[in-house]
């Protein structure tokens, strides 16, 4: 998460293929790229395109990464996002579920890939859940995404939501690292007279 000027915050979540030292170093490389590029004002679309080209040029062809770049305008709650083949983040509020689906393929596969930036509103009281595939893998079953979405529909408390998400994970299936990020926008407070 990187705070940017003009009341914006960049949330980036990536998952690198493979395991071990090579994957860890590639993660570090991607994080450094995101930090340096966002400091020069790069938006999600530019981030996705340039990191994709960087990975295609400088890493072996069997290395790739899924990523989601989410630029949050803190005042308006508008979210501009690019989802490069990552598990769809979920915007949810009071029973309403909106997955932010893929807008391109994973980074590092083809240098001339086109990515698309889309926007979604994060209304007061709404939240967005970002996660890596380690979460859905560790839930198991046929439709782990549906189980996650079903769980989100009834929850409003963040800590409770996180605890319930973790309780869905089965230890014996948790073979991959898991990252879960929940961002909730506070509901508007009604003024009292």
């Amino acid at each position: 998460m990187i705070s940017l000027p003009e009341g914006r915050t960049l949330i980036a979540l990536a998952d690198v293929s493979g395991k071990g030292m090579a994957a860890a170093l590639l993660s570090a490389n991607i994080q450094a790229l995101v930090r340096s590029m966002s400091s020069t004002g790069a938006e999600p679309l530019a981030l996705a395109k340039q990191i994709n080209q960087h990975l295609c040029r400088h890493t072996p062809s069997d290395f790739f990464a899924t990523a989601v770049f989410l630029l949050l305008s803190r005042d308006s709650g508008e979210v501009t996002y690019v989802n490069a083949g990552h598990n769809a983040p979920i915007v949810f509020a009071k029973g309403r579920i909106q997955p932010l689906g893929a807008t391109g393929i994973p980074l590092g596969l083809f240098p001339d890939t086109n990515y698309e930036a889309r926007t979604a509103p994060l209304d007061p009281g709404a939240s967005v859940l970002l996660f890596t595939d380690g979460l859905t893998d560790s839930i198991g079953g046929d439709d782990p995404e549906i189980r996650v979405e079903a769980m989100l529909q009834g929850e409003e408390d963040m800590k409770e939501t996180m605890l319930k998400l973790r309780s869905l994970m089965k230890a014996r299936l948790t073979l991959d690292d898991v990252t879960i990020v929940l961002v909730a926008r506070h509901p508007l407070r009604r003024s009292t007279s």
Binding site: M1, L72, R74, G134, M158, K159, T161, M162, L165, R166, M169, T174, L175, D176, D177, V178, T179, I180, V181, L182, V183, A184, R185, H186
Partner: peptide, 12 residues
């Protein structure tokens, strides 16, 4: 400000 963030990253 105006947002709440909760993260977890339990590894394998």
């Amino acid at each position: 400000p105006s947002y709440e963030i909760e993260t977890t990253s339990p590894s394998a």
